[in-house]
Nucleic acid binder design. Structure first.
Length: 250
DNA sequence: AACCAGGACGTGA
DNA sequence: TCACGTCATGGT
């Protein structure tokens, strides 16, 4: 079984085990962000988003705010921005960085993230979504990576969930799961792991969105940082037998 | 009461 | 290149 085979099997098994995640947490109504959360703290109804630039912006801001941070904290910060009338590029550009930092305090790293938000808004001013839509995915990715505060994962989150581009998001769980299963070395670099996924899967943004969400879900269940112990009761058996047997328990 | 969470960046070796 | 320190709040 090659690593590429494993990438396919893991997706099938996780989808079987957890079902579609319907993921990126974003406000889809005009109501309060808090009220729009489902019982996991996520916002439902995300399959057909983003539908407009406002939603694209909110997804991108969420991607910045959730860096190394629980989504609940990022979501609170996003709601706080909304309540302070700072959920547009112009309003954010008009605000002092310290005002933004105050509003997003609950997300942690608020000084860094406030600066990143302002720089990202300057970027959007220079490269509006409509202009980005005319560029290739790799070109947009390079542009995003030039923004201070946007690294590879955040760039890919924005590409995948805000712009619907098939750019695979590699996060800590992805590396943890695949290295623990012996599919890749634990020291594998971000770009190498991304290449593996993108070479193994059809370039379908909906598939990439679902796969990343499933990896996060599985990671939360079985790969918390401390003791992700010995076995992966869901994935290990499937990779040994080579057939995606359904195995939903824990 | 430590430990963790959907990273990114600066620094010195 | 790379290993390591820093940034920070809120939940368990």
């Amino acid at each position: 079984m090659t690593p590429r085979d494993s990438v396919l099997i893991v997706y099938q098994v996780l989808l079987q085990a957890y079902g579609p995640q319907g993921w990126w947490p974003v406000r889809h109504t005009l109501g309060s962000l808090r009220n729009a959360c489902d019982n996991r703290g996520y916002h439902p109804g995300c399959f057909d988003i983003p539908g407009n630039d406002q939603q694209r912006l909110e997804i991108a801001l969420g991607a910045l705010l959730t860096q190394n941070t629980a989504w609940t904290n990022a979501s609170t910060a996003l709601a706080s921005l909304a309540e302070n009338g700072k959920l547009s590029v112009q309003e954010l550009l008009g605000a002092e960085t310290e005002q933004i930092a105050l509003a997003i305090r609950s997300a942690g790293y608020y000084n860094q993230k406030a600066r990143a938000i302002k720089e990202f808004c300057r970027f959007l001013n220079q490269h509006p979504f409509a202009v980005l839509a005319t560029k290739s995915t790799s070109d947009v990715r390079k542009l995003l990576l030039q923004v201070r505060g946007i690294g590879p994962e955040t760039a890919d989150c924005i590409l995948l969930y805000a712009l619907n581009r098939p750019s695979f998001v590699v996060d800590a769980y992805t590396r943890r799961i695949f290295s623990h299963l012996g599919i890749v070395p634990e020291t594998i670099k971000y770009d190498s792991l991304q290449v593996l996924f993108e070479a193994s899967l059809p370039p379908d943004h909906a598939l990439f969105q679902e796969y990343h969400a499933l990896l996060v879900q599985h990671g939360k269940q079985h790969y918390s940082r401390k003791p992700h112990g010995k076995g992966d009761a869901i994935l290990r058996p499937a990779l040994i037998s080579g057939t995606p047997e359904k195995n939903g328990e824990n």
